[in-house]
Computed example of a mutant assay.
Amino acid sequence: MPELRASALVDAPVAAVAGALLDTALISGFGVRVPGPLLCLGDVLTGPFGVRLTVTRADLSGVSAEGDFLELHTDLVVTGAGTMVVDRVGWKSVRGVLGRFADVTVARGIALRVLQKRSALLAARCRELARARVVVGAAVVRDGRLLAQQRSYPESHAGQWELPGGRVESGEKPEDALVRECVEELGVTVAVGAQVGPDVPLRRDLVLRIFAAELVDGEPEALEHNAVRWCTADELPGVDWLPADRALVPALQALLN
């Protein structure tokens, strides 16, 4: 399978770059049809000439999409100067002289132009996310299970599930905001740990940032939601998550395993 590689250094943390890669606006401009605003594991992408790709990876290490004739891989490498973005595009070529000619003159040229344009869009999106306001969420784990809560409003999302959390107020640290939100929504005190997964874009100027959390005091109650539940790693893909939380399922499974 012929392959083209390209790399670029982005001056941003890996969590921000991984989050920007989830934004389907980066690829929808190339004629790719996507199922939603965020890339999620298992999503099917359709492109020109009937190309179909399934998302097989979407986490802090990068993203991958694979099909019968085309593969796209973006790997993220943390360096002292930022995050190295390594793109790989592979495709099946037609046999014979015509196929080799098409590889050299057409396929490689198109792939290179796409990667260059996507690289510029990625760097610009990372700069936007660096200035974005933050919504925090808690990945509360107990006995190998993750705590989730069911939305009661707005009507468009009622019945779906999400992680506890909320917006960071002006002058408030993200960790302090998460402790406050858990008291307000669940009636519990938590100790906040390290970030889990990428920064997930919610809007052009808003990102969701998840932190691991441990219960310190109290038993979770649905004070502002319909219900709470504890989920195993195997149950997470089948939960009716809000779109942003669904994008974090691979990172949440890794936290539980």
Rank of each mutant, 00 (worst) to 15 (best):
P2C: 03
L4Q: 12
A6W: 10
A8V: 15
A8L: 14
P13M: 01
A16R: 04
A16S: 08
A16H: 02
D23N: 10
A25D: 15
A25G: 15
G31D: 06
G31P: 13
V32D: 01
R33M: 10
L39I: 11
L39W: 13
L41K: 09
G50Y: 01
R57Q: 15
A58C: 14
L60G: 11
S64M: 15
D75G: 12
L76Q: 10
V77I: 14
V77N: 01
V78A: 15
T79Y: 05
T79R: 10
A81Y: 01
G90F: 03
W91Q: 02
V94W: 00
V94G: 04
G96H: 05
G96C: 08
G96R: 05
L98E: 01
L98D: 00
G99L: 02
R100Q: 03
F101I: 07
F101K: 03
I110P: 00
A111H: 03
L112S: 14
R113W: 00
L115Y: 06
Q116D: 10
R118S: 08
L121Y: 02
C126G: 05
R127C: 04
L129W: 11
V135S: 00
V135G: 00
A139R: 04
R142Y: 05
D143V: 06
A148F: 04
Q149C: 11
R151W: 09
P154M: 11
G159C: 07
W161H: 07
P164D: 08
G165H: 13
E169A: 15
G171D: 02
G171R: 12
P174M: 10
A177Q: 11
R180P: 04
E181V: 01
C182L: 13
V183D: 06
E184D: 10
G187M: 08
V188S: 03
T189M: 10
A191R: 14
V192D: 01
V196F: 00
G197Y: 10
V200K: 11
P201T: 13
P201H: 15
R203D: 15
R203I: 08
R204N: 12
L206H: 06
R209F: 13
I210L: 08
A212D: 08
L215Q: 13
V216G: 13
G218C: 01
H225F: 09
R229Y: 02
W230P: 06
W230D: 04
D234C: 06
L242A: 03
A244K: 08
D245Y: 09
A247H: 13
P250M: 02
L256N: 07
N257T: 09
